[in-house]
Design a protein around this nucleic acid. Sequence first.
DNA 1: TGCATATATGTGTCAACGCACATATATGCG
DNA 2: CGCATATATGTGCGTTGACACATATATGCA
Lengths: 179, 179
Amino acid sequence: MALSETILVCLTERPMSGYDLAKFFDTSVGFFWNASHPQIYRELKKLEQRGHVASHREIQTGKPNKIVYEITSDGRSALYDWSKEAVSEPVFKDDLLVRLQAIEHVDKAALRVQIIQRLASARQRLDQYHHIRDRRFSEGAVEAPNLGKMMGLELGIEYENGWINWCESVLKRIEHFEA
Amino acid sequence: MALSETILVCLTERPMSGYDLAKFFDTSVGFFWNASHPQIYRELKKLEQRGHVASHREIQTGKPNKIVYEITSDGRSALYDWSKEAVSEPVFKDDLLVRLQAIEHVDKAALRVQIIQRLASARQRLDQYHHIRDRRFSEGAVEAPNLGKMMGLELGIEYENGWINWCESVLKRIEHFEA
DNA sequence: TGCATATATGTGTCAACGCACATATATGCG
DNA sequence: CGCATATATGTGCGTTGACACATATATGCA
């Protein structure tokens, strides 16, 4: 299971609370690994039991206090060891494509709306990724530690562009044969 | 949950056994919804209890007998009703991208091999998709019932092409800074 | 006969996951 | 004061899903 490793990866960037991680999953690493907040909090407990992360309470003013986790040296070596293991097959599931597969057996008007919504959300994410790229990788030479993050972001950009082009072409083609 | 609907979609094409479905998931619909054979057999039981599919025993010679399922009219209307519901967010998970995100904290030689393997499997799937396209959608005009399947296949082709280009560009870039 | 493989259908079990719900602190608004 | 919202951390519970294992038929090969 890669949720624990994804959390460790996040914590190599900076120490974070469960709440921070949940937001980070929603806006950044969520592109290739997503998790809900209960799952993150539970996983952090397990990681602490294993000694892969350490926590301390941080007193805040104007906000509730938080528990900040940082990766330990044991956590770092666990991450390194894991990285050598075989990569599992990427998981991809999309019930929009399930509908499309049986286009003659679904509500075509609804499908059209669903594709328009998908197009909109792809455009929104593309925008978001462009902003991250401009903010973090704007200078010509990207230093080594950020190279991987930049390449991941580039994949995300290509991915969303692919969806946008595909949705547009599908919308054009289903206009013709809609009742 | 879209596993039951994916099975119904498969059965709109032709009646199938659990074994057939498992192979179909591996080679066709698996691109956008995957499932293991125990999951498929259990789901078929549930679908039959709901009356969305009906089964009959088919005696075979030279092979063990099989239980063939077909979609019922209740199943068809359940599929139609489901198609109007909101599409859930597509799920994508890939621990190769998790490794890449923390490139400074992983075994870079192993990562390089993992990317080469990903490139190979993307090329293999692309090949497979090209074969399906040539076999099923070779004639100029695709009839309406197949239009959705063809558009899904086109997305798969673009998807694998995207991975291939991306893997190649990543391999070039990590050669430079490898120890 | 023994063994491997393909076909065919399952069970048992546990981990992963998602959703609703619970709880508390603090700010701002009417 | 009540209410909404953001921050912050959880529990409870049911579903989904993955993996090992079990079992049976039939073919082919050594």
